[in-house]
Amino acid sequence: MHAISLAKPRGLDVVAQRARLTGSSLVAPALLLVIAINILPALYGFYLSLHKVFFFGNEGFVGLGNYVELFRDPFAWQAIGRSLLFTFAALAVAVPLALLAAIGIRRLGRWGSVLLTVLLVPWAMSPIVVALLWKWILVPSPGGLVGAAFNAFGLPPQDLLTDPLLAMPTLIIVAVWRNFAFATIILIGGLGQIPRDLYKAAAVDGLGAWESFSKITLPLLAPSLLIVISMLTISYFNEVQLIIGLTGGGPIRQTNTLAYLLYHTGFVELDQGRGNAIAAVMFLINMGLIAIYIRILGKQSGAAA
């Protein structure tokens, strides 16, 4: 063995450090933009919520004053109630509908994908445009679609959007019409992962259609259902564009959800201190929902890996 002067290769540390530097600098632009657009405003909003801010003018620190006022306001509590009602009622309609559609579409085979595409068209539309469209469909006149239907039954056309009892259900139907099919996609995926042999085994074991649905489909679909429910919860809880377009929070605050209250207080009344207090409350509720969501997703990807 002849003597060799060993060139000292880059040590382990140097190589690892360089990779770390490269990795971090590749992530940095995206991370900075996300922090600037999503996280910084949240912090700034919290700061503003501690001040009296009106029409873009900061009139000084008020501590938790905005929050105290907000929680003393019965209308704010009413808005929270309306939000819960809207969110959970829409969920209660959308999830079974999406499940039904998913099962039907899987049965249909090739035509199923056509139907899924058709059902998804409303989801591809803008909520504000959907609101305009439904305003026309609901127009209280015998010349409108719904009006004509009332007419056919010999009833005078009703204005569903200004009826205190019917405005909320109408809003919910439109919201579900727009986006339930998106949940269907995920449920179709979930159904596809249930081994077909299980149904054969269940049939051999003498389970009926309902039993095999409740004892095989539902439990095995639970992960997908959880994803769908958490996604829809966040989406309905923050729905504001449909409300702006359809009811403007009315009639007599029946559709005045927390999201709409935030919009109205912050962007219409320009009471930005209080608006930011509402935003902070909404943000916290969202974070709670998201924490649940991440746990579910995390468990999912953990199980998949």
Partner: peptide, 17 residues
């Protein structure tokens, strides 16, 4: 992979790193 020690030559070239 980069060696922690030693040297790899291809022909007359040191290709270690």
């Amino acid at each position: 992979e980069t060696p922690t020690e030693g040297r790899i030559m291809i022909g007359d070239r040191d290709v270690t790193t």
